[in-house]
Each structure stands twice: as structure tokens, then as C-alpha cells.
Write a protein that binds this DNA or RNA. Sequence first.
DNA 1: GGCGTATCATTTGTACACGAATGAATTTGG
DNA 2: CCAAATTCATTCGTGTACAAATGATACGCC
Lengths: 154, 154
Amino acid sequence: MRAPGKTFQVLPGGRAADAYDLQEQVGFILRKANQRHLSIFAARISDLTPPQFAALAKLHEVGATSQNQLGQMVAMDAATIKGVIDRLKARGLVELEPHGKDRRRLVVSLSEKGRELVEALLPEALEVTEETLAPLTPRETATFLRLLTKLAEG
Amino acid sequence: MRAPGKTFQVLPGGRAADAYDLQEQVGFILRKANQRHLSIFAARISDLTPPQFAALAKLHEVGATSQNQLGQMVAMDAATIKGVIDRLKARGLVELEPHGKDRRRLVVSLSEKGRELVEALLPEALEVTEETLAPLTPRETATFLRLLTKLAEG
DNA sequence: GGCGTATCATTTGTACACGAATGAATTTGG
DNA sequence: CCAAATTCATTCGTGTACAAATGATACGCC
């Protein structure tokens, strides 16, 4: 029988070494936490993925920007944001036009339809956050978000 | 100027409502934390992805199992684990054989080469965890892992 | 003013991730 | 004991993710 919590393994030599327990590695637990969040999101906001919603919400917040700039703001590289924008454009939620001064750039903006959708979904999005954090008390939530942010920002 | 920390927005009616700040939503920060971890992992263990390593490490821990069972243990659905196993098999790191009693099942096991690779990488994997958690003090780390686990498990 | 460097968007290739559908095999309940 | 429900693996389709390569454009600095 092994005790619960942190486990150790006694090696042949008699030394005790940290056992590698996958279930205890941050990376693994982060992935599972993400999975749970994704599933909560999908249950409440079925017609948009989190990256798509993030892009729309950010556009709503800052107004028109170039594709790459938007990507930076929502933490997606150029290739990823392109795919997201393409799919939003195909659904008529965003509009693209060339930048006036810089001919390399593509300016993305919310369409009327996109603006209405984001605004309708903002309250739902807040509930997704709430439901995700539901297992924690308010105090724990504050601590958790502080530490998670520290971790995310390195 | 907006004050740092939790922000509020004054709506036309004069009511104050929670503003939706993408950068404060758990889902978004979780995604960024994951990105940082992924990049640390890739820098140290370049020839295996985290899902691939997770599958190998779990196999090393529990021995041969069926594909789906392994998938459950590493939190991947049937379609996902299949792809991971296929790629590991193509590299000769795992072996597949039909289950003796249940003809639906496919038993996966570590090859000799796979076993050697996992064992060589286990210390590296621990360092990935350490480096990921480096922004936190030991005390914060303990708290964080406790809360993250609570969140991941719902 | 022009050349080297940087930036923007795009494309290609690989690897998760999951819902849904399928078919084969096993288990269960009446 | 056998029909219904379940499980296992596979496939298909869609949507991130990111590295690397490419071409067009803009910018820095001499």
C-alpha cells in the first residue's frame, strides 16, 4: 500500500528518489484543467470555439487591427490566427480590408453581425469562467488566478 | 486611466457591470500557461511531444494495456490516443498485439527501445516540471497544484 | 537613395483534440 | 440463451497549434 499524496520510491540501493507520477506533473494537470474548461465552454457557447470567441471579444474591445496584431493580443501565432480569422470571415462575423498605408497589412474588424454576436455572448462567457472556477471558494479563486498568471507569464 | 486589477465598466445607464476582460478569464490564462509549459517541454525533450511522453511514461508505469485503457489513463479519447500510438509505433517505441481473450482489443506495450527512451527521459521530465513551476515559491507551488487539481477534477 | 533587415501575411507539414458514425466483438438482462 | 446495450477500435471531418519557408512590403541607417 502506498500512502496518498506525494509518493516516493525506494530504490534498490536504499535511496529514496522522487517517483515520476504522471498525474502529479503540472503539464498533465494543466492539460486536464484545460479540457474541463473547454467542455464547459462548448456546453454553453456551442457555435463558437474559445479561440474564435477570444478573437471576437478582443476585436470588440480594441476595434479594428491588423491580423498579426490581433494574434499577439490573443496569444496566437500568425498561422493560427489566420485560420481562426478565415473561419470567422466565412461566417460573416468579421470583415477584412487592406490597410491604407501599409500594403502588407490586412485590417480585421467586427461586422455588424459579429458585434451583435459578441455582445450577446459576453454574459455567457462570464458564466463559463464562473462555472470553471466553481470548485474553488472565492478566496481560493483569487489565489489561484494570481498564481496561474504568474506561471503563465513566466 | 483605469486602475489595475479588477476593472469595472460604467454602462450608459449608470449601472456598473463586470467588464469582460479577456486577459482575466481563466480559460485564456490556462491556455497561456499551457503554451509556456509546452515550450519548456519542447526545449528540453525535442524528440517527443507531451502526449507521446505521457503515453510512454504511463506504459512504463503500468505495463501492457489496451489502447483505450491507456487513453483513459492519460486523458485522451479513443481517436486521439490512436494517433499518438500510431506515431510511437512507427518509430518502434511501442508494440501492438491482439488481446488473447478479447478480440476487440489491441494490447500496447513498450518496446525495448521505448523503455530505454522513457527511462532516459524521466529525469528530464522532472526538470520540465520544475522549470515550469519556477516562477512560484515552493509554498506557492504546493498551493497551486492543490487548487489546479481541484479545478481539473471539477 | 538604396541596401540590408525586419515585418506581415501566407503556405506547407506535422501533431493533437474531439464529436460523430461505423462495424466487430463482448456483456448483460430478461 | 438470445436480443439489447455496451465496449473497442477505426475513420471522417473540423479546428486549433506551431515550426519553417516564402514573397511582398516597409524601415533603418549609412
